[in-house]
Design a protein around this nucleic acid. Structure first.
Lengths: 220, 220
DNA sequence: TGATAAATGTACTGATTAGTTCAATCGGTC
DNA sequence: GACCGATTGAACTAATCAGTACATTTATCA
């Protein structure tokens, strides 16, 4: 009760400590996410990550092997999250146009609320998705959103509301493009056009324009 | 006439050399563009750039001061190019819907044909547009495209073709989002959905969907 | 309780990397 | 043809950084 009580919580235990593999792992992953999202893979520093951790650099290598292993683990975690978001979508009960609107809005909102994911995907694209390729967990766990989109689209075509001949995947990609852009290009757009896409007002506009664009593209 | 004739053009002059400031500058910028586009700012190596140059590392620092100065110069060059593309647009003679289609298509094509620019903008966004901010040349030389868009949009509204109340800038951003995505996210989409957005077929589809989305969003 | 494996801390190292030093050479000019 | 600023080359350096060696502590279980 002499020293431990005054420890800044989460940092610097010395004489005695208790094992907590899962906690250490989580802690490292959290810090690493912030650093990779902020600085990219090559910009992030293992020493900086370690310093912001409750543990030491040693542990990073113990659990994740090397810097890229850590990066991959962060990436996988983020894809896990969005996959579970996609699985949570349940739009079968709604009429086609409404379902498609809700799908676009939910996707839009997800990206606004998860800028870290958007930035990580950007970083990964700069690296030509090399680490995505290397990850068994992620590869080929793909199409849940596309299936949702296909379902809605086909109902819409059957109901005579949507024009036929479109690829569901293309529809998904259009929604994705319009959703991601607000986050991914916020900085350059902000600078070049002196316009912040992420104020509540701007977001409301861009959100409704996204829905309008998607539905406009589908209607016959 | 003894040595110079057999020099691999652009590399390794030694005993004697001829001054060519502009050539050296251009050469460095070209190589640097490739490297920054491929590896990002922190991923690019000054030594690698120098090695691929017809000149030496010394010259990089002589002309550009430091790594960031070189990066900024590359960035500025790319924005110069797209600004001149934007100025070249002349759509006033066309009826509003056709003009808007052509604008969307031209923007789409520009990004497909200039993946380096798209990637550089991505990199810059990862850095929160810090270098764009620092560049006098680029800052505030903005809105030419938006002016073009506004012109077309207002003609369309006046003609009763487009619904009113939209922001021209938002229309520009929608076109931009749909155009950039194909290049910027080619790698991750390719991996996650096992789909190459940049085959001729895929591009044709995405191009026409982009036009459909933009017009669909504008029509009343 | 003692042996063993898992988890952790401390201190170090070899390589890489941005940036520099110093001097040589070129292209004009007077 | 000598002088001077602009341009260039080759080798060097100080700092940074990913990764490691080695020792120590904790938990588990027989």
């Amino acid at each position: 009760m002499t020293k431990p009580a005054e420890m800044p919580p989460g940092k610097r235990r010395q004489a005695s400590w208790t094992q907590d593999p899962e906690g250490v792992r989580r802690n490292i992953l959290e810090v690493a996410r912030e650093e990779f999202v902020e600085n990219g893979l090559s910009g992030a520093r293992v020493d900086d990550i370690a310093a912001k951790t409750a543990t030491s650099k040693r542990m990073i290598y113990y659990y994740f092997g090397d810097k890229e292993g850590l990066y991959r683990a962060v990436l996988e975690g983020m894809y896990d999250r969005i996959r579970s978001f996609e699985r949570s979508l349940d739009l079968d009960a709604l009429p086609p146009e409404e379902a498609m609107s809700k799908l676009a809005e939910a996707t839009f909102d997800y990206h606004i609320e998860n800028p870290d994911f958007v930035r990580m995907v950007m970083v990964e694209n700069v690296h030509h998705a090399r680490h995505l390729k290397a990850s068994r967990t992620i590869a080929r766990l793909n199409s849940s959103v596309v299936d949702v989109t296909r379902g809605i689209y086909e109902r819409g075509v059957a109901a005579g509301l949507f024009r036929s001949g479109l690829e569901p995947l293309d529809i998904s990609l259009t929604i994705s493009a319009l959703s991601i852009y607000n986050v991914s290009h916020r900085a350059t757009v902000g600078q070049v056009f002196d316009y912040d896409m992420c104020t509540p007002d701007a977001l409301a506009r861009r959100r409704s324009m996204t829905v309008a664009a998607v539905l406009g593209m589908l209607r016959r």
